[in-house]
Amino acid sequence: MDLPIKTRLFRTLFWPSLLGLSLSACSSFSSMAGENFTLEGELPANFSLKAQAHYGVANGCDGRRQAKSFKSGFQSDPQQYRFRIPVSYREGLCEMRLARVGLFIHGRYGNKDWQQTYDNGSLVIVDKLPEGAPVFQASGTLTKQAECTWWFQQSTAKSRLGEISKLLNCKGAGAHLVGNELPDKTVRLEFRVNLEEEPSHDDTWVKFPEGWKPCLPKPGWPNCQNPPVFKTFKMNGRECTVYPNCTE
């Protein structure tokens, strides 16, 4: 069926213009540059870091939460890491805003798959800093240090029963950050390892000048008997009496 002349004329003259205007507006909206901040620092040997940035929709459009991950690999020597993390970006018609950054600090203490573990940290995005929280310096950098301690224990897994396994505990691995202050700033989070390892549970090992000795528990309790009765443990397939040197 033929369209009326006025209708055909309107479509011929105006539709390309409207379509071009629509595409131009969409293109300029989606190509708006996002804001970023830098997360950087140093990792000890045999450590890696994963930062997982979580985003929420900020402009009321019909979108859903998203996440972006940034990760360094393991290295046998200390390494520098540097992640450029968006504070905001466009996803179609939606404006995505940073809500928090989860940190996963991985450490390995041997070559076997089970000889690695991790602890968590977090960059918390707030409107106002808690009292006493560190602030950005005039240079635009906020510097913090996290201290990681290895907690040793005897494994209860059947495949490595009695073998030394470790947990990782990292204190200070995070910061509170004001969201509207973040663009173009640098958060420098350094990690160091405490040279003194600790038992994963109190009163399960006894410390001597030559090292730690594990003791038999009280019946029905994990704590050492009094006086302590010592036992052996396994480390890399060896029968040992004192940690970390194995033998006295």
Rank of each mutant, 00 (worst) to 15 (best):
V57P: 02
Q154D: 01
P4G: 09
S72W: 07
Q153W: 04
L13Y: 07
D203N: 15
T186Y: 05
R192D: 03
S22F: 15
W151P: 04
G162H: 00
E35D: 15
L216G: 05
S200D: 13
S155K: 04
R97N: 12
T143Q: 14
L9N: 12
N226E: 11
V178S: 08
C246E: 05
W15H: 07
C94V: 02
C61D: 14
I105W: 00
E131I: 03
K71T: 13
G107T: 04
Y55E: 04
Q154Y: 00
L23W: 11
D127H: 11
E131V: 06
T38M: 12
L168R: 09
P130N: 03
E198I: 08
V178T: 12
Q225T: 06
P217H: 01
R238T: 07
L182G: 11
E42V: 07
T232G: 07
L167W: 10
P44T: 01
F233S: 02
S30G: 01
Y81C: 02
Q153I: 00
C61P: 02
E91Y: 08
P217S: 01
K207G: 05
K166T: 01
I85Y: 10
S139D: 15
P183A: 08
E196Q: 15
R160V: 12
S200T: 06
C246P: 07
L93E: 05
S27G: 10
N120S: 09
G56C: 06
R84K: 15
A58Q: 06
W205I: 06
E248G: 08
L216R: 15
W114F: 14
F10T: 07
C148I: 04
R192E: 09
G179R: 07
A25E: 02
F70T: 02
R84V: 15
Y89W: 11
L142G: 08
A138M: 02
E131R: 09
N223G: 08
N226G: 02
Y118T: 02
Q75E: 15
L142V: 09
P86G: 03
L9V: 13
D2K: 12
S72E: 06
F10N: 07
L216T: 12
A133V: 06
K218E: 14
L168D: 04
P86D: 03
E42Q: 11
P209M: 08
D62T: 08
G92T: 06
R192I: 12
W221H: 09
K6L: 14
F37Y: 15
D62W: 14
L182C: 11
Y243F: 14
T117C: 04
G110Y: 09
Q116T: 08
I164W: 00
G172S: 12
Q153A: 10
N111T: 15
V126K: 09
K185W: 11
A51M: 04
G63K: 06
P219A: 06
D113R: 13
L9F: 14
G41C: 10
G102P: 01
T232D: 05
C94K: 05
G102M: 12
K166V: 00
Q75A: 15
E181T: 13
F233C: 03
Q145H: 10
M1F: 01
G132Y: 07
G162D: 00
K128P: 00
G20Y: 06
A58D: 10
S139L: 02
V57F: 03
F230G: 03
Y109Q: 03
E248L: 10
T247L: 09
F14E: 07
G63E: 05
L182I: 10
Q153K: 12
G211K: 05
K185Q: 15
H176T: 03
V101M: 11
N111M: 14
S69P: 02
G110P: 08
L168W: 08
L21K: 04
A51V: 06
